[in-house]
Design a protein around this nucleic acid. Sequence first.
DNA 1: ATACTCATGTAAATCGTTACATGATTTT
DNA 2: AAAATCATGTAACGATTTACATGAGTAT
Lengths: 175, 175
Amino acid sequence: MNSQDVILGLLMHHSLSGYDIKHKMETILSYFNNASFGTIYPTLSKMEKDGLITKESVIQEGRPNKNLYSITEGGKLQFKKYMYSPIEDNEFKSDAMTRLFFGEFVEAAIMVGVLEEYLVRTKVNMERLRKLYVDCQPDMSPTQEICIQIGINNSESQILTLTEGIARLKNVKEK
Amino acid sequence: MNSQDVILGLLMHHSLSGYDIKHKMETILSYFNNASFGTIYPTLSKMEKDGLITKESVIQEGRPNKNLYSITEGGKLQFKKYMYSPIEDNEFKSDAMTRLFFGEFVEAAIMVGVLEEYLVRTKVNMERLRKLYVDCQPDMSPTQEICIQIGINNSESQILTLTEGIARLKNVKEK
DNA sequence: ATACTCATGTAAATCGTTACATGATTTT
DNA sequence: AAAATCATGTAACGATTTACATGAGTAT
């Protein structure tokens, strides 16, 4: 799975500009995907060159013109090919957890700080997902609902584990 | 956080070869980090050149010679610098969840397949973490315990969400 | 016989981010 | 007046993976 596959999936619904795609990446897809403009625009150019999408310039009033991209039959075929290919493993990299792992080499207070910061970030993310769920639920497909539930439930579980961990660490310190 | 920071952390405990580092990455660190030999060996060379670590050739019987790397005072300083720097956000990319998100464009049976495959992989990973916890608990620091508990609890939560999701999808299909 | 473990390393390719460049309109 | 939104694009850089190359010893 690369950025091209995700863009194809987004264009299956309706035509979008590069800017629109970036917005979707940051909101509905951000829990399990991400891409910067530096990836999106060159990828769209390549996809057009390869005949997977077509470009249409749209002149707007009071706003810059935009390039609206639409998926072609070839693009739909490529999307299907992706959806039927073997599933790749998740990729996960956590700086906060890496620090926790090496925590014994710095003062305990620093580790409490890492845990509290990680807890706050997890809470912020959970709230964002919860709000997204409330706002989008009527338009969501059954599998999209499962997706966001995974995000919300995993965040909740992590909040519990971190809260317990902080309490335990602080207890150890007091003893 | 990059591979260098993780390698420094591993060498804080005791000297290791590139092969040893790869092994640690695959077992105790794999839940939130990963690196291939193609990253590890060139990184070790660069770190030696930069004076963060020193190399010692160890001749072994019945096994190939190995290069044992040890952290220097400069390396320890660099490690501290990392541990006190601002925490970076987690990176997460999920092919399985991406497919679920775009599930409406393929048959429901394919999505049940994705969910079941994702469930199996989550279960396998949870079992691996549970076993690791049992095997390593006596040697684990308090923050390392929190780390692995995050992994185990998040896996458990995901197993529940996926199981419920599968049941719901199958129900929808029957109706 | 075959596969796995131990052990190191390079080169090509892939993939992606960050920073820069530009600029109008709208909101605070 | 400043910041945010809308909008596209490139160039330099960074990080990492995959595949290749080599080879002995051990376990099945």
